[in-house]
Nucleic acid binder design. Sequence first.
DNA 1: TAGATTGTTACCGT
DNA 2: CACGGTAACAATCT
Length: 263
Amino acid sequence: MPEILEVESYRQLAEGALDREISGVSVPDPHCLAENTTTAGLTHGLVGCRFTVARRLGKLLLMESAGPTLGVRFGMTGTLVVDDRMAIDRLLYSSGHHSERWVRFALGFVDGGSLALHDPRRFGRVELDPAVDALGPDALSVTPAALRRALATRISGGGPPVKARLQDQAHLAGIGNLLADEILWRAGLSPRRRCGSLTDAEHRRLHRALRSTLTDLSGRGGSHTGDLMAERRAGGHCPRDAAPLRHEQVGGRTTWWCPAHQR
DNA sequence: TAGATTGTTACCGT
DNA sequence: CACGGTAACAATCT
């Protein structure tokens, strides 16, 4: 579920939890706590507080209060539930299912409502006052110049594959595997192209493709609604020119692309 | 059943 | 130091 578009929808859902007094903390699965975070610390820091703003940096949700900030990372399958309402998404593990056993962390409000992390696969994490300085610029607002800086390299030979860098949260925050494939498909760039080999025109195409992908897929309902998605399977063909898609590991992730128009 | 999965981190090698 | 590759993490679905 969660790439930047999903987490942005969780952030909007989280706005419904602002300015409500927190009455209690429940951690049914302590595995979801980050290294520096304990149930006692969460309880001590948050009970009696109210969230003042819901922010997002890349895939990280930040709930600020007058006291500490609550950070939530959603891993592969995490989703946010506020007052038993889930943000709209139709992804694996969340289509229709809403199992109580997937609640890993929850806050109760004095008014009786709640904010909870559901996460079947348990890669999600909750953290008090998470560090945010290691993240690159947010992909939803990145400028052409900032994207170019994010892709810059000094390695002779051209640096990492452009797909690997697009997904590197320290350089650009928010892009995951599905969005990266869709963006590169729209930009007509091979995922294996080295960052240092991109021309000025290709940088511009990449930024435009990033913008159009985030805008279009946000309107359609998420990272899994890309033009390429249905063909991301054995025997899949390019929706643009019908060439058979190629798939290999790039940057450690399964990658699908069209060898005919992605160069 | 075997294989795949939208994320992150640690570690080793170059 | 900057990367690539790999494994690990964990649970579920096809």
